[in-house]
Amino acid sequence: MLMVAAIPFGARVAMPKLTDVELYAWIAQAEAGARIEYHCGFLGIDVTPVISTLPEPERRQLADLGQAALGAFEKGLVHLMQERVGPDRFAYIAVARPRPKAAATSLSALLLEERAA
């Protein structure tokens, strides 16, 4: 089971690297307003093959994570935020949104659909 602590606004907390599946699991159990830092760095550069300094497997995992966060945002499940932590360095944060009262599909179905895409 993924255990994630809420991050107070403005706090800098070292977070373990997440996978897209772990982000989905967090979204599924998070209460509205809960926050998770899913990356710290410069996401656009860190996922780009030619300029990223990350090893290829880690770069691909981060790209999948970024796409998962974007997909969850597009489905209205999270807000995405950035906080500047230094020159060319940002904390990328997902904030859980309230669950829709009458959803046409379940949250699990939405997340599985995103994972398959």
Rank of each mutant, 00 (worst) to 15 (best):
A109K: 12
L111R: 05
G41F: 04
D64P: 00
A11I: 12
K75V: 00
A14P: 07
F9L: 15
A5D: 15
L43R: 04
K101D: 07
P16I: 09
H39P: 06
L77T: 01
A30H: 08
L110S: 08
L70K: 09
T48Q: 02
E114L: 15
G10V: 02
V21C: 01
E22N: 10
D46I: 03
E31F: 08
K101E: 11
K17I: 04
Q82W: 05
E58H: 07
I93W: 01
E37L: 10
P87A: 15
H79E: 10
A28R: 12
A104E: 11
A91M: 09
A102I: 09
A6T: 13
A34I: 01
E113P: 02
I93N: 04
L112D: 15
T48G: 00
A91D: 12
M1V: 04
L77N: 01
L65S: 05
I27A: 06
L65E: 01
A14G: 09
L110K: 07
C40I: 09
Q67A: 06
R97P: 00
Q61F: 00
A6N: 15
L54V: 10
T19Q: 01
K101P: 00
I36R: 09
T53K: 14
C40E: 13
L18E: 03
E37W: 06
G41E: 07
E113Y: 07
S108W: 01
I36D: 03
Q29A: 14
V21I: 12
L65W: 03
L2H: 05
A34T: 11
D88W: 10
L107M: 13
G76Y: 07
L43W: 03
